[in-house]
Amino acid sequence: MMFVAFALFPIAATFGAEAYLIDLFRRIMIFAIAALALDLLVGYGALVSFGHAAFIGIGAYAVGILAASNVSDMIISLPLAIGAAALFAYLTGTICLRTRGVYFIMITLAFGQMAYFFAGSLAPYGGDDGLTLAMRSTLLGFAPFKHDLLFYYIVLGCLVGCYWLCRALVISRFGRVFRGARENPTRMAALGFDVFRYQLTAYTISGALGGLAGFLLANATDFVSPAYMSWHRSGELIVMIILGGIGNLNGAIVGTVAFLLLGEWLSDLTENWEMIFGPLLVVIILLARGGLLGLAAQMAAWYRRENILSVGDFIAAVGRYLRQLARRTIKSTLQTSRSRSRG
């Protein structure tokens, strides 16, 4: 399981003594929490929030502002970070959830942008430049985030906790209604469910988890800035979950790992890594339905179908596949002049 890999990773890393890798994976796990929160909405409720970075930012700013006022105990800052994000989600959710589809995407973006510009106007707290965390959060005098490895495992604990929470939510009575609302809201209303209340609850929970991610992120980077809330971040979160495969909590984590790791690796390789990364995304989407997890499932099925046992089989099968692909492409090109109906 992925979590075991995460847990074992620092031990492997200590041999190479690569502190920055621990740092990288800690960041990956923090974003995975945010991605899980988003997948809860997108994957199970078809509520594509394009402003999810705002919740991370709010959580982070709660830590930053409190630290600037010399309050660093997480007994205070953690509930406040989560609570503030949840409150923002609740208030904006009451408005956003009146709309559907693309309009929902755009109105969540609107609120995300408002939060972004608001943070930029917080002159006492650095404005556009952001603010450096005066000190990391403490717990009743202890400083659990001071020790990198301990911090790493705390983040892992949070990730496991969030995963477990989301899983439980999805299969619970509540989750059943929430999933049903995506499938057929009219039917749900006829059954007697007030769909709005369920969606608002899920939206609030998702915002709260985003706040948690923000709390951790502020401590991990010792820094808070409006950039945490920019729409690029929100967009990246969406890309992460689609890349992994939506509607599957594992997909959110796989997608986050793949997105950040691939980005990191390619940017080490070449300065123009986006020129490789971009087309790679396109290719993955064109070839696979259901993101990387979907691709893996397709590959497994293909392995079985082609009965691949050796490297030779593999190459032969790839050859067959490419020939098929070429034939199909030529065919569809020839059909360009013919009309095609859409369902």
């Binding site: 439980a168 939510l169 299969i171 619970s172 009575r173 509540f174 989750g175 059943r176 209604v177 059954l191 007697g192 469910f193 369920y198 609850t201």
Partner: peptide, 16 residues
């Protein structure tokens, strides 16, 4: 059945 039997604001336990 769930719609008429108690609250659906139950977040834990496998509904199925």
């Amino acid at each position: 059945v769930q719609a008429r039997s108690g609250s659906s604001f139950r977040f834990f336990g496998r509904a199925s």
